[in-house]
Design a protein around this nucleic acid. Sequence first.
DNA 1: GAAGGTAGTAATCGACTGATAACATGTCAA
DNA 2: TTGACATGTTATCAGTCGATTACTACCTTC
Lengths: 197, 197
Amino acid sequence: MNAAKATRMSADDRRELILEAATKAFAKGGYHGTSTDAVAKEAGVSQPYVVRMFGTKLELFLEVFERAVGRIRDAFAAVVDDPTFDPASEDGRARMGLAYTELLQDQDFLQVMMHGFSAGGIDEIAAAARSCMGEVFATIRRTGWDDEEVRDFIAYGMLLNVMISMRALEHLEPDDPLAPLTACAFGDTIELLESTA
Amino acid sequence: MNAAKATRMSADDRRELILEAATKAFAKGGYHGTSTDAVAKEAGVSQPYVVRMFGTKLELFLEVFERAVGRIRDAFAAVVDDPTFDPASEDGRARMGLAYTELLQDQDFLQVMMHGFSAGGIDEIAAAARSCMGEVFATIRRTGWDDEEVRDFIAYGMLLNVMISMRALEHLEPDDPLAPLTACAFGDTIELLESTA
DNA sequence: GAAGGTAGTAATCGACTGATAACATGTCAA
DNA sequence: TTGACATGTTATCAGTCGATTACTACCTTC
């Protein structure tokens, strides 16, 4: 899949490349539904190499998952840490919303996140999910908003995540059963996203 | 697992029993993470019997999923159809909230639902998810609430679903990274749930 | 009491999966 | 240039999975 196959690469670069490929692969199938071979093919390397580099499939998934949620957390942190950010203002709220909207452009991350959140059947993943989600909450809390406001902000984001996972944006036809909710949930960001989805 | 194994049973009864077992099994592992053999063991029948009764594993999952979401939709429908229901009143909103809280008692249904929502990689499941979610939206909409209010109600429910999936309720220790959000999200329903979880 | 449909199992298969081991190739320092 | 390490592959394995086939046991009805 990748042109870099023939050439040798530093382990760090190769690791990065595999993590990106794994993000794409896990986004589609989740932990159980994605084989290490699928990741390897996506990355353009052999399957045993993937396994050996990360130890086990679970460790690979955990790393992919923590990166995905970490990226989201960091996007919010960047807004909060901006010295011109005023959490109480309408502009402040808009900035936080926009930060999330920008994340919607790369849906692989969000889907990996949702797969991790749903995988409560695997202890390590559930623990990572709680830990990462706790961090996101703590980050958004730093706005100074009331906990209820933070909670509602996260809840709304979660709705969007779920709808992306069920591929609502690819089914905006007026006769689709979900279209009314999709329109209401995504509002005017929908045109922005349609072009990229 | 079930005492009914030795005795013969009508196909309809057995079907029901397998669907319940499958709900429990799929709640843990989702579609990919649950084998038909796991379902069979949970139901106390042989694996080939499960497959033959439902055709394929996918058809079984779809039936389990549609039942799960159907049950949620019906719970809301019952509230809306109650002649004493006044959507605009505080009591009306409380009733809808309570209907959801009652659903939280049986977390298997909610987890199956979340697994279905996340399984966008399988076309049939994604389509079923959109369809079922569309029905839930339409049902709640019958309250007469503004679309935004319906959306927020669903979003909040989705947050609770996700937190249940990551087993937040089993990790309420003060040092758990997620505990603050869990406390905020579940509020006073938490004592109610702790006893059953 | 036997015929025929229904409920259910045992045996088995081919495909796939994650992991391991053994091997090959490239790179760089002395 | 040769030794040593890092990068990467091929071959292989034991376990698991969904599905099919063929078989058994039960119940009903005439």
